[in-house]
């Protein structure tokens, strides 16, 4: 969240609610809708770290609104973030833990676990497919995000198959 807010502010100064709207517009429905409280907390931390500053802007008939803008330090931090390679995803799979450990306790057998998980993944895939169908075809960003989630899910299913083949 820190970096995405910094990136949006590097484009132009904005207040908290505008940042929330910008994230929603750019990433579409696949993106977990950011909580406005979380945005203000993050902006507060960025301000404390000297990455952003804010000014109060007077509004007719309304309370003042706080507009944030990026500082030189903030811009440097953003540049570092953009230029460094991004960590790849790590396998940290809760299901795999279950699959390996649960049979040892006699709580479940692996076949049943894998079968249930496969059906669950397919249900998730159906949700993603329906989400993609509902998404504006012009919104390339949102569609690519959904496609990324689908590819990860396919990899999870392939891995499940390997587990079923190789774990007794």
């Amino acid at each position: 969240m820190r970096q995405s807010l910094l990136a949006l502010l590097a484009k132009e100064p904005a207040h908290g609610y505008e940042l929330k709207q910008a994230l929603e517009t750019i990433f579409g429905d696949a993106y977990p809708s950011p909580n406005i409280g979380q945005i203000y907390v993050t902006l507060g931390r960025l301000e404390k770290d000297g990455y952003v500053r804010s000014v109060d802007v007077e509004q007719a008939n309304r309370p003042n609104k706080k507009v944030y803008y990026i500082t030189a330090t903030g811009r440097e931090a953003l540049e570092t973030w953009v230029e460094e390679p991004t960590e790849g995803p790590r396998v940290r799979d809760e299901f795999f833990m279950k699959l390996v450990l649960a049979p040892m306790t006699g709580l479940s057998d692996r076949m049943a676990l894998v079968n249930r998980q496969r059906r669950h993944y397919l249900a998730l895939m159906r949700d993603l497919r329906e989400l993609a169908e509902r998404t504006d075809p012009a919104n390339r960003v949102a569609l690519l995000l959904i496609e990324g989630a689908m590819l990860h899910l396919q990899a999870d299913l392939d891995w499940l198959e390997r587990c079923q083949e190789d774990l007794p």
């Binding site: 995405s4 579409g28 429905d29 993106y31 809708s33 059906r119 159906r126 989400l131 989630a149």
Partner: peptide, 25 residues
């Protein structure tokens, strides 16, 4: 080894508040 319906997902309906993708926060 398995034969059955693909269930409805238990997740809340997508589209309003998508939680499909977890971007690094």
């Amino acid at each position: 080894v398995d034969d059955g319906a693909i269930p409805k997902s238990r997740r809340r309906p997508l589209g309003a508040a998508g939680d499909v993708v977890e971007l690094r926060s």
